[in-house]
């Protein structure tokens, strides 16, 4: 318990430390990585628990983001409050999850992967093209001027002033996202240890044997799709409100793949693994932005385009990490030890 409290204090202080040492942009990066963490936790329900390989997960993020964007921007002149649109976005995404999940229930492994990938791409193509003849999504330009995340008069996207203390916007957002992440984490860990979570894991391990102990496998698979998608939709809404702008470009296959990597890299089906994986993969590319500086230090000039080099190193990191630790960075032995201490 003591350990938990000191961890909480550290997490609460982190943005301030970063803000004063590394600057605002780094806090912003951490804000985004919290969103990624939420997405990873959602995908972890689908891939990690239920074992359903979903390569189009970003679509649910997109649904949530566009729901938010359409219901609180000049696009249709609608400006509903946060506490209404976030749930709408989450429910819409969840419905999409069930809708897309239903026809794929019979599919296994790689087939499922490719169909979900297809669904993801279809949604993106629609977002890209639903601008004519009726303009819904505003096409590739996307939707801008989205209302900021706000509760009544508290606008998280702006700095808040309490007496003498001024909390910068990126730190407000940090706390808001942190709250969302913590809630998601509590929900997922409770699910993991519940009858529902066990049913998912049983399906993941052996679907047939699971059905033979009375698990309605189709229902539970749909449930996993729906819940995972709901979490994706929720983070999508937060994303839209944070950015103030959405466009189809943010929802490419590469993003789905990235989130899958986050889930697998840390050790899927296991929340600490997902946390490590998503933080690592969302922060690593940003750290690698510094390659221009390193090059100057090493060679006295920039030899290779830093944007390229960054992605090359990221790709290499993925390959090497998998070669070294194919079961993920947080090994399952840890999980076992933890269970024995229960």
């Amino acid at each position: 318990m003591k350990k938990n409290i000191s961890l909480l204090v550290a997490v609460l202080l982190l943005p301030w430390l970063l803000y004063f040492s590394a600057g605002q942009s780094w806090v912003r990066i951490i804000d985004f990585s919290l969103l990624y963490l939420m997405l990873s936790l959602g995908l972890n329900v689908v891939v990690g628990y239920a074992g359903l390989l979903d390569l189009g997960y970003i679509a649910f993020f997109a649904v949530g983001a566009y729901c938010y964007a359409l219901l609180s921007s000049p696009q249709f002149g609608i400006h509903w409050p946060l506490l209404v649109i976030l749930p709408i976005g989450a429910v819409c995404a969840g419905l999409f999850g069930v809708l897309l999940g239903a026809p794929t229930l019979r599919l296994k492994g790689d087939y499922l992967a490719i169909v979900t990938l297809g669904f993801g791409e279809i949604i993106r193509i629609f977002l890209n093209n639903l601008s004519s003849p009726v303009n819904i999504t505003n096409g590739p330009q996307g939707i801008s001027d989205i209302d900021p995340l706000h509760l009544g008069s508290i606008v998280f996207n702006h700095g808040l002033v309490f007496g003498d203390i001024r909390i910068p916007s990126v730190i407000n957002i940090y706390y808001l996202f942190l709250l969302a992440v913590i809630i998601t984490m509590i929900f997922s860990s409770r699910l993991e240890r519940s009858r529902v979570g066990r049913a998912w894991m049983a399906i993941r391990e052996d679907e047939l044997a699971a059905s033979c102990v009375g698990i309605h496998t189709k229902r539970y698979k749909l449930l996993a799709f729906g819940l995972g998608a709901t979490m994706g939709g929720l983070s999508g809404g937060l994303f839209a409100g944070f950015q103030g702008f959405v466009s189809p470009e943010s929802f490419t296959l590469m993003e789905s793949v990235m989130i899958l990597c986050m889930v697998v890299l840390g050790g899927m089906g296991h929340i600490p693994g997902v946390i490590v994986g998503s933080l690592l993969l969302s922060i690593l590319p940003e750290v690698l932005r510094e390659t221009a500086g390193w090059q100057r230090g090493l060679f006295g000039q920039v030899i290779v385009d830093p944007a390229n080099l960054r992605l090359i190193m990221f790709a290499l990191a993925l390959v090497v990490m998998m070669l070294v630790r194919p079961e993920g960075l947080i090994p399952s032995a840890l999980r076992r030890k933890e269970m024995q201490h229960e």
Partner: peptide, 14 residues
């Protein structure tokens, strides 16, 4: 897991 159908907890309950 074998106790699955002898119990009822739903997502919400969990």
């Amino acid at each position: 897991v074998g106790r699955h159908m002898r119990s009822q907890a739903s997502v919400l309950g969990a």
